[in-house]
């Protein structure tokens, strides 16, 4: 399965699933990261992944990014 870690810089992808506790998923939903949403990966390695979600920008730890499955 492809995760956010496998996306190249500058690419836009569609989120399929977010693994983890339901609390974690809901928190991500509140910022626009949920199955079906489109996100753009701004920066990959090394360190946290930077993504653009509906115009706002977030840095996610790699462990977190691994839990985001994408198309």
């Amino acid at each position: 399965m492809k995760t956010l870690l496998d996306v190249k810089e500058g690419e836009s992808v569609k989120v399929i699933e977010i693994k983890g506790s339901s609390c974690f998923c809901k928190r991500m939903t509140a910022v626009g990261l949920f199955p079906g949403s489109r996100i753009k990966v701004v920066k990959t390695v090394p360190g946290p992944i930077i993504v653009d979600v509906a115009g706002s920008r977030f840095a996610l730890g790699r462990g977190m990014a691994k839990r985001v499955l994408v198309e």
Binding site: R57, F58, A59, G61, G63, M64
Partner: peptide
Amino acid sequence: DDDEFFIELPA
């Protein structure tokens, strides 16, 4: 705790 790094990068 669930202290994975997560931070907003404001414009």
